[in-house]
Amino acid sequence: MGKRSINADICFWRDPDLPGVEARFSSYNEEAFRKHVHAAYSVGLVKTGRTSFFLDGEMHDAEAGQVVLIEPNVVHACNPERDSCMTYRMFYVDETWFRSVGQEVFGSGAASPRLPRPVVDDSELYAHWRELHEAIRGNRHRLEKESLLVQGIADILVRYGELSGREQDSPGGEGAVEAIKQYLTSHLESKVNLDTLSDIAHVSRYHLLRLFHAKVGLPPHTYQNQLRVDLGKRLLATGTSISQVAQEAGFVDQSHFSRVFRQFTGATPRQYQRGASPSTVK
């Protein structure tokens, strides 16, 4: 009896907060693809197994923990090696995202990015794009997803891309960062987006992320989550129900609130509420 095909284990996500981006998770133990092209940039994360894939007339190998980078409209076919089960996360990112971030990184004269290395060993890059995948799957806030995407594209371009021009000096300073912090503080329940923060700071999205992290030590979405958790702690201390706290603090739902709350406090909202009182919470 032959091995059971698991090529049916496939999921897709198309997030309205990230137009032009499609994420997928797939598991294959036999050939599934003929040679084909995508109009978008492809960023793949090999989770398990190995693949020997065809790309533009050549064969390349990739295995678990590696990142696969494929330019738009390049003929390729990625299938698992014989007797191997390959699972992977994949992103298809519209060329406009790469072009716009490339211009933010390297200057307005930069051409469409090229990715001459189809397989890279970069655990940090792998972990970053995996986090973006989880953010899309978990329907996290728009600002977090946008920040992860822009930074992820920028990391690919700076480390492995070929563009003309050079990186701009980061403009802005304390005033821009303080304006962003004030905006985030006053919009805890809003679905803040990166373009809005870029307009406030008068810098590009890429330089906004660099500037904010350099001054604050956190990306904007993490800083806003910290503010939301702080508000959640105050509300929990008054006896407000966890579901109501999650809503008032601007989280997607109670599950999202509980997960983020634990990341920041090391305790669940219920554990915190049981031990908190208005006189002891800071």
Rank of each mutant, 00 (worst) to 15 (best):
H76S: 00
A179G: 12
R159V: 02
A276W: 08
L188K: 04
Y126N: 09
S170W: 10
R4S: 07
D61G: 05
L69R: 03
D17P: 01
P220V: 06
S147A: 15
S243C: 03
E63Y: 10
A214S: 13
E95V: 14
G49P: 04
G266A: 11
M86C: 08
V101L: 09
F212L: 10
D155N: 14
R114Q: 14
S198A: 15
W97M: 08
D83A: 04
L231T: 09
I136A: 04
V203L: 10
P116N: 06
V67F: 10
T51S: 14
V67Q: 09
L236I: 09
L227A: 08
G65Q: 12
A110L: 07
H221A: 15
D195A: 15
P269F: 03
S198C: 10
R82P: 02
L163F: 03
E248W: 10
E131V: 02
V68F: 01
V43W: 01
P269M: 05
H141D: 12
T268M: 13
A179E: 12
F257M: 05
Y92E: 13
R262G: 04
G250V: 00
A110G: 13
D195P: 02
R142W: 01
S204K: 03
P220A: 09
G107R: 06
G232K: 06
E31L: 09
H76A: 02
I6L: 01
I180Y: 00
D9I: 11
L148R: 07
R14W: 05
V150F: 06
S164D: 15
F91T: 04
G152F: 05
A127L: 12
I200S: 07
H60K: 03
A267E: 15
Q182M: 12
V74H: 01
I200Q: 08
I156G: 00
V229R: 07
E189S: 08
D15V: 04
H36N: 04
T280K: 14
D195G: 14
H38M: 01
H128L: 15
R99P: 03
Q224P: 01
S84H: 09
S52C: 10
E134T: 14
E81V: 06
S123L: 11
H187V: 00
S198P: 06
V43A: 05
L18Y: 05
A39I: 09
Y41N: 06
P219N: 08
R274V: 13
A23D: 00
C78A: 15
S147H: 06
Q247W: 10
A246C: 00
F264D: 08
R210I: 11
F261V: 01
F212D: 08
F264H: 15
L227D: 04
M59R: 12
I10H: 11
